[in-house]
Amino acid sequence: MLELKSLSKTYRTGDAALTGVSLQVPKGQIIGLIGPSGAGKSTLIRCVNRLVEPSSGEILLGGDNLVTLGRRDLRTQRRRIGMIFQEYSLVERLTVMENVLSGRLGYVPFWRSFLRRFDAVDIQRAYQLLDRVGLLDHANKRADALSGGQRQRVGIARALAQNPELLLVDEPTASLDPKTIRQIMRLLTEICAERNLPAIVNIHDVPLARQFMQRIVGLRAGQVVFDDAPAALSEDALTRIYGAEDWDAMRKSDTEEDESESDTRRDLSEIPA
């Protein structure tokens, strides 16, 4: 579905963010992109929809090369790619509905979007998506009135409103609490499964990647150093990606976190309503 061929990006400052990255993403597969800060995860997914211009290489989405597109073609290709952001990136002063409908901007002419006169089908779909992410009652609220988890759900609905063929997800849970993180990840994976959507998910939380991803790609200093199933993510592999560290200690503290979380849940359930 998506194919990257020796993709490279060198920033104007001379920093080589990506060097010769090649990757194939088949339909319906969710890939977790892990790696230390500055490894080029963010650059990689931003190159795909050209929010960052790649320096060389090819990006093929269903056979179309995205790197050589002109302005107009870029617009029609971008709408095939849904993107979900770290800080939700909703337009805060717009309503939830407007945010979801903004996923249709690539399809409608300016005057329609300006007058907020979207097609009946688009509006129906937007409601349906809001229902899917559990926010049907919040359609007319302003986006800044929602909580973090709710905002990220709106972000997901906006990306899906594009009717995308690929999802790019940039640290979707970086600013959420542990419980909401799992809910959002579950929602994302469910949705991808429902629609047979491929997705590239930047994720800095290794246990989370292991739990939810079907395949893991490790980046280090702009190069792919690991590409395999989560089960194959051994200590050696982690050291290759992140450098030397006591991984067992980290994993242990993470199970502790999980336990304390379930503890809390138990405590909460004991409180009479």
Binding site: L51, R78, M83
Partner: peptide, 29 residues
């Protein structure tokens, strides 16, 4: 906030749509 504009740009919005959906709500008040 550039990320809001980035999100709208990523949907395939045109320049005028970007102005109307990402810039105007932020600067209008």
């Amino acid at each position: 906030d550039e990320t809001q504009a980035e999100a709208i740009r990523a949907t395939g919005a045109s320049w005028f749509q970007l102005l109307n959906y990402a810039i105007q709500p932020q600067v209008m008040p």
